[in-house]
Write a protein that binds this DNA or RNA. Structure first.
Length: 494
RNA sequence: GCUGCCAUCGUCUAGCGGUUUAGGACAUCGCCCUCUCAAGGCGAAGAUCACGGGUUCAAAUCCCGUUGGCAGCGCCA
């Protein structure tokens, strides 16, 4: 078998979104699995909407996701296939050349109809309940008629001449044979009036010239397949294999859009999702292994990915599962790695000042203590900030239910006062010593050990939940613990 | 409207004619662990395999139809 070459071809008209990442990912995984090449091509033929900014945004997103490309922007070592921006290719006359060839072979023709005229045709067809399409009136223009149009200053588009009869069969890797009736197909535009090729044409020309062997793309493109196949045939080109992936839908079952929550991969990055979590989760939508494995390393995915095991039915994006997977990935890392990830994240979000006074070693220890609770990198901020804030931020609810409640306040006062004295004088902060202290005090005052621990936790952290008291104290240091307990006594019991 | 695609727990999915009292994962609930919150362990609940017909000794699995959902129908990609 020839070497696999696949491509991801985004158009720079917006951020890279979830659906795009999925398409890119499956192409990338397929390439990696087959030891083939993954190519990135920028389809910037939409003059009005394409921007350089979006090109950069997409490239940055691909880099963050670590979906590295063998050929593409910034990496066109192979002159045989470059450039990888369609507008640059257009400047070289690549598309015009094949459009001219199609005209010469009578597979395409100039059309002088205005967009308004074509629109009217389609509307009429809709009313008549027949498939909406261009009626082909410019197909057989005589030379005189063409001269006349030119004299009137009309600028033509080039349309592909679709056969009126017969069927064309797409043999899709995932879906099997899909039949299309040629009669229903439009004489679609291949070169616009401004000389720029349309998607369906540019895509075919580039896939051919770049020797793409497999086209994996979203299901929403399946109706483009027959049009593109006719071009391959007209030009006598060998077709790539096609595989149409089932769509990812929003929670209400409709096409994923902004109202379903985050769309852009950048937003996920900002929230503190890990690249590998997003990748793992997206791989689960539409692809599965025999044993329904859920958590994969990137290497594992590359090894196990199989296009044959991609499903045909659409799937709904589930943010909860992604969140769980993100926590799962974070838990699997050691504190050092999480710290690095956290620093990267905080740099990315531009909030470095939030942690500029935080001691690095203390932060690493704190991360270690709270690791199991981190689901998003941004959680770290609120999980460990109390270690670094000299003034305890007492949570209203915690104070009320643990320190100042009528039934508990006397006990809380005694516990804190005794703790302040005994901890500073008689106990070191080892786990054993602390347990003994708590037990002794509990027996002495006839209360539960938890009634010893809880007030202390609120006193030094301001909250009811946190790491075990022993760990917390160990990391915070004896002096600081005593200081905070004393401040709490002053604040609430004097 | 036309054309195409799809249909297993709320969600992601396993399942390729008998091994299925339909398995796993997320979410939900309970128990255990425990100084709290998590994490972890154990368990529960949750799917008349969209519906209706066939084919077959046997169907979630094959065929046909119906219904529903989604997508496409641009001088956008």
């Amino acid at each position: 078998m020839t070497n696999v070459r696949v491509r991801f071809a985004p158009s720079p008209t917006g951020d890279l979104h979830i659906g795009g990442v999925r398409t890119a990912l499956f192409n990338w995984l397929f390439a990696k699995n087959k030891n083939g090449k993954f190519i990135l091509r920028i389809e910037d033929t939409d003059e009005a909407r394409s921007t350089r900014t979006y090109v950069k945004v997409i490239l940055d997103a691909m880099k963050w996701l670590k979906l590295d490309w063998d050929e593409g922007p910034g990496n066109d070592g192979n002159l045989k296939y470059s450039p990888y921006y369609q507008m640059e290719r257009k400047e070289k006359g690549i598309y015009q050349k094949y459009a001219d060839e199609l005209i010469a072979k009578k597979f395409a023709y100039y059309c002088y109809c205005t967009p308004e005229e074509v629109d009217t045709m389609r509307k009429k067809a809709h009313v008549n309940r027949i498939p909406p399409k261009y009626d082909g009136r410019c197909r057989y223009l005589t030379l005189e008629q063409i001269e006349q149009k030119k004299k009137e200053g009309k600028i033509p588009v080039i349309r592909f001449k679709m056969p009126n009869t017969g069927t064309i069969i797409l043999n899709d890797i995932i879906r099997g044979d899909v039949k299309f009736d040629n009669f229903l197909l439009d004489d679609f535009v291949i070169i616009k009036a401004n000389g720029i090729p349309t998607y369906n044409f540019a895509c075919v020309v580039d896939d051919y010239l770049m020797e793409i062997t497999h086209v994996l793309r979203g299901d929403d493109h399946i109706s483009n397949a027959p049009k593109q196949m006719h071009i391959y045939n007209a030009l006598n080109w060998k077709m790539p294999e096609f595989a149409h992936l089932a769509m990812i839908l929003g929670s209400d079952g409709s096409r994923l859009s902004k109202r379903h929550g985050h769309m852009s991969v950048l937003e996920y990055r900002k929230e503190g999702y890990l690249q590998e979590a997003l990748i793992n989760y997206l791989a689960l939508l539409g692809w599965s292994t025999e044993n329904s494995q859920q958590v994969f390393t990137i290497e594992e995915m590359k090894r196990k990915f199989a296009i044959e095991r991609c499903g045909t039915s659409p799937s709904i994006f589930d943010p909860m599962k992604l969140l769980w997977l993100n926590g799962e990935k974070i838990r699997s890392k050691d504190p050092e790695e999480i710290y690095e990830l956290f620093v990267d994240w905080i740099n990315y979000t531009g909030n470095v000042k939030l942690i500029e006074n935080w001691d690095t070693e203390l932060l690493k220890k704190a991360i270690f203590l709270e690791r199991d609770k981190i689901r998003l990198l941004k959680d770290i901020l609120s999980l460990v900030d109390f270690f670094f804030n000299k003034d305890v931020d007492y949570k209203e609810e915690a104070v009320q239910t643990v320190l100042t409640a009528e039934k508990l306040k006397d006990i809380a006062k005694i516990v804190l006062t005794e703790s302040s004295i005994r901890l500073s004088k008689h106990y070191d902060f080892s786990a054993i010593s602390l347990e003994k202290y708590a037990r002794d005090l509990a027996v002495e005052k006839n209360i539960k050990t938890s009634q010893v621990f809880h007030p202390i936790r609120v006193a030094i952290s301001g909250r009811k939940q946190g790491p075990s008291l022993f760990h917390m104290m160990e990391v915070m240091g004896k002096k600081e613990v005593i200081r905070r307990i004393n401040i709490t006594i002053d604040k609430f019991f004097i």
